[in-house]
Simulated assay, not measured.
Amino acid sequence: MSNDTEHRPAEVFAVFLRLGLTSFGGPIAHLGYFRDEFVTRRRWLSDAAYADLVALCQFLPGPASSQVGFALGLMRAGWRGALAAFAGFTLPSALLLLAFALGADAIDGPLGTGALAGLKIVAVAIVAQAVLGMSRSLCPDRPRAAIALGAVAVLAFVPGAAGMIGAIVLGALAGLVLGGEGRSLGGPVAPGVTRRQAGLALAAFFGLLILLPLVAGWAQGLAVIDGFYRAGALVFGGGHVVLPLLQAGVVAPGWVSEADFLTGYGAAQAVPGPLFTFAAYLGAMLDPAPSGITGAALALGAVFLPGFLVLVGVLPFWDRFRAMGRAQALMRGANAAVVGILGAALYDPVFTTAIGDMRDFALALACFLALTLWKAPALAVVALGAAGGAGLALLG
């Protein structure tokens, strides 16, 4: 894997901008696009090296596809390359969702409001598909299915961010107790990061996680950064898991309504790039301020930052850490718990907010079947949901 920093960051930005404009389908699809672009076409790294990098990013909290892109930019063109990769891949969807948030109030009439209601119904199908897929890969046996069920039970009695953190911690401890066979995670990863830089990144990751809640009461802007940073720091198992964490961060305190939250989540399925850019929509919709462009920038930076800090912090130590059986057991338990967290979010707020009657449920079921059985693209399903919602509104 090349650490040659002579390659201009502009090259990295151009490649990732094209991917940011065309990469539909969620994080797993993004990783496929990356492999085709950087392993097959451009030969920036070998297939084995790419697989090792993907294994690392899927092991850590944060947005896996964005972390892979950040690492590829880092290894190709240094720190400026890492930032160029992030900007190119993230800006298209972030700007589209920001524009949607700023123009949402202008949507009026039965067709417009019906289409927005349809986006909330699409969210039911998208999250249900994510729960199904994640349960198959992360809860393939009875012990891990029990951990997921336990996470749902924790959230039933302790809702909100505290319950989610508790469920993840308990799930990790249960995974350690249950043990199990370790995974084969391939060969070494070339870091492009010194141990000193890694130590500073880890110190920043944990320092902000501890410090931000203590200073959040000083100003609303700090509270916003705290909520989005905490959400980004606790996402295990895929981009959709950020949904309940963001819901706890912005809906629970009353900054964004549940209806607006689900409308934005549905719209996020229609744009390319990382799902974490949903934070740009939420930041723009915040009440009280900061909102608009300022709120979007704060939310977007805060939700991505912890994933990049922990990636940089672990890169030089990854080869040794992943060989530890206990570390793998902890992660297996934590990943099973996040399946339960997402399953709980599927019921509340997703289902309870979006589904008002049997007609809504029928549309949600049609969208779910289109995704899972007919393998329709997410963009087509979003269009189906919006059109169906508009149609139901006209029927009255």
Rank of each mutant, 00 (worst) to 15 (best):
Ala386Met: 05
Ala323Phe: 06
Ser23Thr: 15
Val235Thr: 13
Gly109Val: 09
Thr277Val: 15
Ala302Phe: 01
Val241Met: 04
Lys120Arg: 15
Phe321Gly: 04
Leu330Val: 11
Asn3His: 14
Leu178His: 14
Leu363Lys: 00
Gly333Met: 00
Gly186Lys: 05
Ala115Trp: 11
Phe368Cys: 12
Ala329His: 14
Gln220Arg: 13
Phe206Lys: 01
Ala336Ser: 04
Gly295Ala: 12
Glu11Met: 12
Pro288Gln: 02
Phe304Glu: 07
Gly343Leu: 05
Gly160Asn: 07
Asn3Cys: 13
Gly385Leu: 04
Tyr281Asn: 06
Val310Ser: 00
Gly388Asp: 01
Gly20Gln: 00
Leu95Arg: 03
Trp318Gly: 03
Gly391Met: 02
Leu373Trp: 15
Ala130Pro: 05
Glu181Arg: 14
Pro27Cys: 09
Tyr50Phe: 15
Gly118Met: 01
Ala156His: 04
Ile210Phe: 15
Arg230Tyr: 11
Leu116His: 07
Ala354Met: 10
Arg320Ala: 11
Gly199Met: 02
Ile107Gln: 09
Phe317His: 04
Ala151Pro: 08
Gly313Cys: 00
Pro63Glu: 02
Leu102Phe: 07
Pro213Lys: 01
Leu330Met: 11
Gly313Thr: 00
Phe157Glu: 12
Pro288Ala: 09
Leu102Cys: 10
Ala252Tyr: 09
Leu170Val: 14
Leu200Ile: 03
Ala106Tyr: 10
Gly273Arg: 05
Pro110Ala: 14
Glu258His: 13
Gly385Glu: 01
Tyr229His: 15
Leu45Val: 07
Val250Leu: 06
Ala248Trp: 01
Leu282Met: 08
Thr353Ala: 13
Leu72Ile: 15
Arg322His: 08
Arg18Asp: 09
Ala123Thr: 12
Lys375His: 12
Ile355Asp: 02
Leu97Ser: 04
Leu371Phe: 10
Gly385Thr: 08
Leu72Met: 09
Phe70Ala: 12
Gly150Phe: 03
Val251Lys: 02
Gly389Tyr: 12
Pro143Asp: 08
Leu138Ile: 06
Asp319Glu: 01
Ala146Asp: 02
Ala87Cys: 08
Ala123Gly: 03
Ala268Leu: 06
Leu300Ser: 15
Leu132Val: 10
Gly385Cys: 08
Gly207Met: 07
Val271Gln: 06
Ala289Ile: 11
Pro188Leu: 04
Ala101Trp: 11
Val12Trp: 03
Ala336Tyr: 00
Asp105Ser: 14
Ala366Trp: 06
Leu56His: 13
Gln328Pro: 11
His7Asp: 10
Gly103Arg: 04
Ala123Asn: 04
Arg41Tyr: 01
Gly103Phe: 10
Met358Trp: 15
Val271Lys: 10
Gln67Val: 08
Gly171Asp: 02
Arg230Thr: 13
Gly295Gln: 03
Val382Thr: 13
Leu298Gln: 05
Phe16Glu: 05
Val256Asn: 06
Val127Tyr: 04
Asp260Glu: 15
Ser66Thr: 12
Trp255Cys: 07
Ile107Asp: 02
Phe100Gly: 10
Phe308Val: 02
Pro27Ser: 12
Ala267Lys: 05
